[in-house]
Simulated scan of single mutants.
Amino acid sequence: MRVLVVEDQPKMRDVLCRGLGEAGYDVDTAADGPTALQLTREAIYDALVLDVMLPGFDGLELLRRLRADDVWTPVLMLTARDTVSDRVSGLDAGADDYLVKPFAFTELVSRVRALIRRGSTSHQVVLRCGPLELDPTTRRVALSGTPVELSPREFAVLDLLLRRQGHVVPRAEILEHVWGVSSQEGSNVVDVYVKYLRDKIDRRFGTRLIHTVRGAGYRLTEPS
């Protein structure tokens, strides 16, 4: 298994290279965005470990260029920043997983192993539920062909409901998936964003896709 480590700090790059090598991976390294992009055009990798802050152009730009070139190698993004907006930016650019520095090296190896096991996602299929369509790659949402404009978090909530359509998705799971927290005591943020979605989809188009399951969560199903 071949892994590309893209990290501009020499000490961290050496640690990653040595540790992944000891875990049984063949490791190539790059210290900047342009070099990493060139390496991905010359070789096929099973996974990329990618720092956000890079010279030349940063990790987010590298990700965008890779995905634009139809390179869907699984990417684990490393960053020292741990805000929701940072995670959303990384995932929107095409990252498959996200790890905040400092981290336990055993966790990094475990995540790389999981990404390789999952394999390249290629171009993700369009998600559909009745007249509703969501394209995870272009981030386009439409109902009966009419575009629906959503904020990043509205999109993330709808994406989760579509992937789990027909099943109840607990509020806690939505909170963890979209906001990256396991609980927010006394917060109704999930309910607020579901209302936003209903306003833009169900109420606007006179349909009923998003259902409340009292005491459990939300379920998205095709209209009867």
Score class of each variant (00 low, 15 high):
L50P: 02
T221P: 08
F103Y: 14
A156G: 04
G33E: 02
L78T: 00
V178L: 14
L108V: 08
D199I: 12
V100T: 13
H123Q: 14
L4R: 11
A23L: 08
R171C: 04
L162V: 05
R164I: 06
R111W: 09
A31K: 10
D202M: 04
D92Q: 08
R2W: 11
L76K: 00
E154F: 01
D58A: 06
S120D: 09
A80V: 01
R203H: 13
V27N: 11
R118C: 09
R203C: 03
A104F: 13
L132Q: 03
G19A: 10
P147A: 15
R41Q: 11
Q38H: 14
W72S: 08
L150C: 10
N188A: 10
E42I: 06
G130A: 06
V49I: 03
Y196C: 03
G145I: 11
L91D: 06
T212R: 13
S182Q: 15
P147T: 15
T83N: 06
R219D: 01
Y45F: 13
R153F: 12
F105Y: 11
G33T: 00
L160T: 03
P147S: 15
S110Q: 11
I201S: 07
P34K: 14
L16V: 06
A114D: 11
C17N: 14
L16F: 12
A114C: 09
R163V: 02
V194W: 05
D86L: 04
D92E: 12
D51N: 03
P102K: 07
G145C: 09
R64M: 06
V194K: 02
R163I: 04
I201E: 08
G21S: 13
Q124I: 00
M53H: 00
D28E: 10
D82V: 01
L127I: 05
D86K: 04
I174W: 05
Y218F: 13
T212W: 02
G186N: 12
R208W: 09
L99S: 02
Y218T: 02
V3F: 07
Y45K: 02
P34C: 11
V109K: 15
R139T: 09
V27C: 15
S122N: 14
G21L: 09
T121M: 11
L37S: 01
L54E: 03
R111E: 03
S187I: 11
D70I: 06
R87C: 06
P170D: 06
H167D: 14
G24A: 12
R219E: 13
L160G: 00
L76M: 00
V100E: 02
S151T: 15
V194N: 02
G186L: 10
L50I: 02
G206M: 05
D28N: 08
R118P: 15
G215S: 08
Y98Q: 00
R65M: 09
Y218P: 04
D14Q: 12
Y25T: 08
V88L: 15
S182R: 15
Q184P: 01
L127K: 15
P170W: 05
L115V: 05
R81S: 01
R153D: 10
V148C: 15
F57R: 01
G19T: 04
R117T: 09
L76S: 01
T79A: 02
V141P: 08
L115W: 07
D58F: 13
L209H: 12
G186S: 09
S120A: 13
R113V: 12
R87H: 05
K11W: 07
V109M: 14
